[in-house]
């Protein structure tokens, strides 16, 4: 029997500045222990969906105007971000993901952790998955490389002991080899801690390599979803997200295919 849904998003609609609808009725479901990828191009609504789940819409004058977000049986849309974190959801944002003037160890001290975990427990947890951070523990976070910052961001999110880890654009600005390594760490985190993970990515190849399930978003809607392996094999995904085109395809022909794909996806 499959695991029950940990997170359910139903017909979610998000409006910015009371005028711009960024997410138009997205529904998705994440089961316990899964790694789920949300893919899409710029402006598809991926990050907005993630922000709606983690309670960060208010800052950008955006609101959930319709639909629901349910986590562990509790409705959480439009709740305060720190409340949502305490319920068991931690977000690794796309940018500004560490406190630059704090040291690595201070970045691991600041997050909220359940009361029975002390500082040493938090450090042990962080170094278990990112041993490199142990060597950098006294370094100011602003002086870390991009990959090291991403490690620290993931580690500090883990300190909150989330049941659900949301990772926004893990690959942004990082070399492919670093992205591959970080994706492997996500798999390790899921395996060893049982953490459910949602990864929002433009880099479909990196995400689909580790995802059990995936959703493709375009213009604020889910246009395609399925198991990771099935999406990897899907012709449209291969062509438009993984860049695997036949060398004989001419550009004009690609445009025709793109038009047909749009017709298929948008109905």
């Amino acid at each position: 029997m499959s695991e029950p849904a940990l997170l359910t998003v139903e017909k979610l609609e998000v409006v910015y500045h009371r005028a711009i609808t960024a997410v138009q009725g997205i529904s998705l479901s994440v089961r316990k222990g899964q790694i789920v990828a949300i893919l899409g191009t710029n402006g598809a609504g991926k990050s907005t969906t993630l922000r709606a789940i983690s309670g960060f819409l208010g800052i950008d004058d955006a609101r959930v105007t319709d639909g629901s977000v349910t986590f562990n049986g509790k409705r959480i849309e439009n709740r305060q971000p720190n409340e949502i974190t305490r319920l068991g959801i931690a977000l690794v944002p796309e940018r500004d993901k560490v406190f630059p003037n704090l040291t690595v160890i201070e970045n691991l001290t600041a997050p909220f952790a359940p009361a029975h975990y002390n500082r040493r427990d938090n450090e042990v947890l962080a170094y278990q998955f990112f041993p490199r951070l142990a060597e950098l523990r006294s370094r100011t976070a602003g002086l870390l490389s991009g990959g090291e910052r991403q490690m620290l961001a993931l580690a500090s999110a883990l300190v909150c002991r989330p049941e659900l880890l949301l990772v926004d654009e893990l690959s942004l600005g990082l070399a492919p080899v670093v992205v591959q390594d970080l994706m492997a760490r996500l798999v390790q985190i899921r395996h060893e801690l049982g953490t459910t993970i949602v990864v929002v990515e433009q880099s479909a190849a990196a995400a689909l390599n580790v995802a059990d399930y995936g959703y493709v978003l375009e213009n604020g809607r889910v246009v395609l979803d399925g198991e990771g392996a099935r999406l990897r094999a899907h012709g449209d995904i291969q062509e438009f997200y993984l860049g695997q085109t036949s060398s004989s395809d001419r550009r004009s022909y690609r445009s025709v295919k793109q038009y047909r794909r749009s017709r298929r996806w948008y109905g």
Binding site: P81, P93, K97, V98, C160
Partner: peptide
């Protein structure tokens, strides 16, 4: 913002 994301009230 990040502080709130890390569960800090």
């Amino acid at each position: 913002l990040l502080a709130a994301q890390r569960g800090i009230n």
